[in-house]
Design a protein around this nucleic acid. Structure first.
Length: 445
RNA sequence: GGAGAGGUGGCCGAGUGGUCGAAGGCAGCCGUCUUGAAAACGGCAGGGCGAUGGGCCCCGGGGGCUCGAAUCCCUCCCUCUCCGCCA
């Protein structure tokens, strides 16, 4: 949410910023409502002051006709106040609803562009691997090695659902554990395990509602919403709180499933697990003092990059231009990893500075020093990383001539020392093998 | 899910429809005293809005009755106790 004062005092600056975002917002109606609201507040407060004083006086009067007359006179005033209060409430409700639909303003140094074509590649890291055999996309590798059961995923839950099998399911688990450990041990984050279902207010706090409800799964009966990212519950940890002096910065990391309807992109990226309704993600969230959010964003990007470097996956850092910024971000960098099989750059991380936009919505403040007035914090978050696309990148970059997949060195300790992923057993094989073992033992004894 | 009890300032805890933004205690800050500290004594001390013009709003959230609500009514949320169920 933008500062209403900013819209009031510098409407042209706001209009210009919205134009850069290639979007529109009802600034004129907001200004009109704000003007009316302030008139009403002044009037109603004046009348209430009058009522308070008079009521106090009535309280001290002895019973009698004089007192009755005073009460009768106040009844009329009360009705007038109620009338004005009703109008004020209506104006404020409308104003609030409009404000919740105005996007954040881009930082002045964000490149201006109409859409993703205006994004700027900031830097590259690593050389794309060369292969002396035909490279395969991950869905072929997965099919051949039995790593993903697409058909049964669809049978259970519908399109864009999948089942990871055997060593790939384990690799995902290893990646999550390793990534969280990395952020905790090397980058200074505290691990948290939040709810995956949240109230409406939490979704409003992070900016997912009211505008983007059509991408969220929702339970009508309880009015709970499935999180599309850990950003939602983790950012809302401190909703309606004033953090005491000295408590910032706060760095949190959480591994959670994410649920997205992805209705907007029906038909796109249907092969493999690039775009799915349910996926795991390790998410970093920061609460910082406003003066430090610029440098904190750079460090956040570096923390996410560190994951890819240690996995030895070539990637590039892309800065979003104004036309491709999300609703809530003032500045955003994506990390895109090269997938040689799919022949495309995959977005595995998105790191944003929201400045006070979310803090204002969620009412998250801090006290700079003892006795000082509370201020809004700045919030930031970044993926570190999203799992399906990281799995894709590993499968495609680490594929071998024989069709197997090498396990990145840093993950081997999390895979019991295993170095390679080969063909996976059928669903029934492990149990049959165990039964055979047991029968052999029984026969020996 | 059923029955009951509650939600008051950083914490604990009073509070009869008017003199209550709220006693008292603890913690906190400043001062006096002291070589210093403790103790004692004195003082300060919640959040928000706002055209800084007084003022207005906030006793879990919202609504209502009333001239007037922390106090009465409705509703939602939350906590606790007992029963049931459950990993």
């Amino acid at each position: 949410m933008l500062d209403l004062r900013l819209i009031r005092e510098q409407p042209d600056l706001v209009r210009e910023a919205l134009r850069k975002l290639n979007t529109e917002a009802p600034i004129d109606e907001i200004l009109t409502l704000d003007e009316r609201r302030r008139q009403l507040v002044a009037e109603v407060e004046r009348l209430k002051a009058q009522r308070n004083a008079e009521s106090k006086r009535i309280g001290q009067m002895p019973p009698g006709p004089e007192r009755e007359a005073a009460i009768a006179a106040m009844r009329a005033l009360g009705e007038r106040i109620e009338e004005l209060d009703r109008e004020l409430a209506a104006v404020e409700e409308r104003l609030q609803a409009l404000l919740l639909e105005v996007p954040n303003l881009p930082d002045p140094d964000v490149p201006v562009g109409p859409d993703e074509s205006g994004n700027v590649i900031v830097r590259h890291w690593g050389e794309p691997r060369t292969f002396d055999f035909p490279v395969k996309p991950h869905w072929e590798l997965a099919e051949e090695l039995g790593l993903i059961d697409f058909e049964r995923g669809v049978k259970i839950a519908g399109s864009r659902f999948y089942v990871l099998r055997g060593d790939l399911a384990r690799l995902q688990r290893a990646l999550i554990a390793w990534m969280v450990d990395l952020h905790v041990n090397e980058h200074g984050y505290l691990e948290v395990y939040p709810p995956f279902l949240v109230r409406r207010e939490a979704m409003i706090g992070t900016g997912n509602l009211p505008k983007f409800g059509d991408n969220l799964y929702h339970d009508e009966e309880t009015d709970l919403w499935l999180i599309p990212t850990a950003e939602v519950p983790v950012t809302n940890l401190f909703r309606d709180e004033i953090l005491p002096p000295g408590s910032l910065p706060i760095y949190l990391v959480a591994a959670t499933p994410c649920f997205r309807k992805e209705k907007v992109s029906a038909g796109r990226d249907v092969r493999g697990i690039k775009r799915v309704h349910q996926f795991e993600k390790v998410e970093m969230v920061k609460f910082v003092e406003p003066e430090h959010s610029d440098e904190e964003l750079q460090r956040l990007v570096a923390d996410a990059e560190d994951v890819l470097r240690r996995l030895e996956l070539p990637y590039r850092v892309v800065q979003m231009c104004t036309g491709d910024l999300s609703f809530t971000a003032a500045k955003k960098f994506d990390l895109e990893v090269w997938a040689p099989g799919s022949q495309e750059w995959l977005e595995v991380s998105s790191c944003s500075n929201f400045r006070d936009f979310q803090a204002r919505r969620a009412n998250i403040r801090f006290r700079p020093s003892e006795g000082a007035r509370p201020q809004y914090v700045h919030t930031l978050n970044g993926s570190g990383l999203a799992l399906p696309r990281t799995l894709i990148a590993i499968m495609e970059n680490y594929q071998q001539p024989d069709g197997s997949i090498e396990i990145p060195a840093v993950l081997r300790p999390y895979m019991g020392g295993q170095e390679r992923i080969g063909p996976q057993p059928a669903y029934w094989e492990p149990a049959q093998a165990r039964r055979a073992r047991e029968q052999a033992l029984a026969g020996d004894g």
